[in-house]
Design a protein around this nucleic acid. Structure first.
Length: 296
DNA sequence: AGCACA
């Protein structure tokens, strides 16, 4: 008997809901090799790095690491701020092609952020990542192409610039001819930022179809929830204006109005899933309201 | 899963 296959790995502990059954994505264009020795001929057989998109813009390298670290054969990962909008992508490298495929199948399409409903989109990378885990550079590898570094962007960054070809996997608009992409001259240290560069304001829409709004819709409140209780929880976040509590058929829902979308988002992110004292049904579920609250 | 007030 030839041992040409290995037993499937045991399921990981259900720590996150990331381990829920992912929807099946039939549009994976890689080809499984039917010949055991055709690894060299299979163009994808040598790829052991995954390309991950669909990440929220505030994703941390730690999250990516935690996402893949338990997967069999995982070696290392890197997070890349592409510099295009707020888009962030990641690369995860495994010991071989099979283990990369196993991780791909188990995580592709999985909901990554319950707030926004964003789902992971994982495909094979165009090329394998090369290990850049230098000693002293920290456990996470972060490539930051953003010109704007906020306070929370203090992670180990390595801008050697040898993984630029990978970034093109998610750049459909890079209509250049060949590999004449020269991003290596990214030694910019935030010298001359664009004076007047109005970012194209795009309507922030989640996968669920919910649109950002400065009024929040709050559900999954306990039947004994009071307006004061909820108001106290909300008023500790800047920009909170007013609250309306309504009961429909017994289960109350609430609308909380904020000065702006950003402040509403901050409060939603902070309070999402948290429970009030009166709650008996788990944490609050907060979404953007479908329409802004009228002026009181 | 549940979204009002004008």
């Amino acid at each position: 008997m030839a041992h040409l296959h290995q037993p499937p790995p045991p399921p990981p502990p259900p720590r996150y809901d990331l381990y829920a059954q992912p929807p099946y994505f039939p549009q994976e264009n890689f080809v499984y090799s039917t010949i055991p020795t055709a690894g060299a001929r299979d163009p994808n057989g040598g790829i052991n790095t995954l390309f991950v998109s669909g990440l929220p813009d505030d994703v941390k390298a730690r999250e990516i690491h935690n996402l893949f670290r338990r997967r069999p054969g995982f070696e290392f990962c890197q997070l890349k701020y592409t510099g295009r909008g707020n888009q962030v992508v990641a690369f995860a490298t495994f010991v071989n092609h099979q283990s990369a495929m196993a991780a791909l199948h188990s995580l592709n399409g999985v909901k990554f952020d319950p707030q926004t409903g964003s789902c992971l989109h994982i495909e094979l990378a165009r090329s394998n990542s090369r290990r850049k885990n230098k000693p002293g550079s920290g456990p996470y590898i972060v490539i930051d192409k953003r010109t704007k570094s906020s306070n929370d962007a203090h992670e180990t960054s390595s801008d050697d610039g040898d993984s630029d070809d990978q970034s093109r996997a998610n750049n459909p608009d890079s209509g250049d001819k060949d590999d004449s992409v020269v991003e290596k001259s990214s030694e910019v240290v935030a010298d001359a930022d664009k004076a007047a560069a109005p970012e194209s304001e795009q309507i922030e829409k989640s996968v669920d179809g919910t649109q950002a709004c400065s009024t929040l819709f709050i559900a999954n409140l306990g039947p004994l929830c009071t307006e004061d209780e909820l108001k106290q929880a909300l008023s500790q976040y800047p920009g909170f204006n007013s609250l309306k509590l309504r009961a429909r058929g017994g289960m109350p829902v609430a609308f909380a109005d904020f000065e702006g979308v950003e402040q509403a988002s901050e409060a939603m992110n902070a309070l999402q899933g948290s429970s009030l004292q009166s709650s008996d049904r788990g944490g609050m579920h907060i979404e953007y309201a479908r329409s802004k609250m009228r002026k009181p």
